[in-house]
């Protein structure tokens, strides 16, 4: 999971639903593991498999037409529970980027902490991207983290996206927040002393 992030070009997996909550990304009954691995198997479990465990054919992850490491989702992706298992499931399945017009706050942080890049695009860019993928499932998108741009290679349209410089640095260099915080022990103790 802790992989350096630079420029990614990939086909996309479209999920044009809005308000996809973390209970759908990974249902609560799969949160009982005590390690971070293996959650990808149960990503979107109840949309992906029927109650007998057979794949539901028309769900996008079961449709061989679509593939790639970029998930494109409707607005307000990742609402609800703070479970990081949702980000682990997305990363473990093999997604490196999630594109949406709007992300829930906690889930967005969780993705970043697992080296999955949430890319916020305009409603228009998102709608056009869904259209491009519907017309041609092999539509490629390039996400350039250093330049902070996303490009729909079918339309040629490009947008810039925001990410704070600190998190960008972390992603490009595969560094996590704990390493940063551990380097700040003296400041933390000084803060406690004056409190």
């Amino acid at each position: 999971m802790k992989e350096k992030f630079n420029i990614i070009t990939s086909t996309c997996v479209p999920l044009p639903m809005e308000n996809v909550d973390t209970d759908q990304i990974i249902p609560a009954r799969f949160l009982k593991a005590t390690s971070r691995e293996g959650f990808g198997e149960n990503l979107f479990r109840d949309w992906r498999y029927d109650k007998n465990g057979n794949p539901i054919k028309d769900f996008v992850l079961n449709d061989p037409t679509y593939s790639g490491c970029i998930l494109v989702a409707g607005k307000n992706f990742g609402s609800g529970s703070s479970r990081e298992h949702a980000a682990w499931a997305i990363a473990d399945y093999g997604f490196r980027v999630v594109v949406s017009s709007f992300f829930a706050d906690i889930h967005k942080n969780n993705e970043l902490n697992n080296f999955v890049l949430p890319v916020v695009v305009s409603e228009q860019f998102l709608a056009e991207l869904f259209d491009s993928i519907a017309e041609n499932p092999k539509t490629e998108v390039t996400v350039d983290l250093p330049a902070q741009t996303i490009t729909n290679k079918v339309t040629g349209k490009s947008e810039s996206f925001e990410i704070n410089p600190y998190k960008k640095h972390c992603l490009i260099n595969a560094l996590d927040d704990i390493e940063y915080l551990l380097s700040k022990k003296d400041e933390i103790e000084a803060f406690e002393a004056k409190k």
Binding site: I178, L182, K185
Partner: peptide, 21 residues
């Protein structure tokens, strides 16, 4: 008071701090 992910739980355990926008 706010909810956090597991990576952030680890941050708090390790440093009593969290990085938040």
């Amino acid at each position: 008071a706010f909810g956090i992910g597991t990576s952030e739980v680890e941050m708090v355990l390790a440093s009593q701090c969290i990085l938040q926008p």
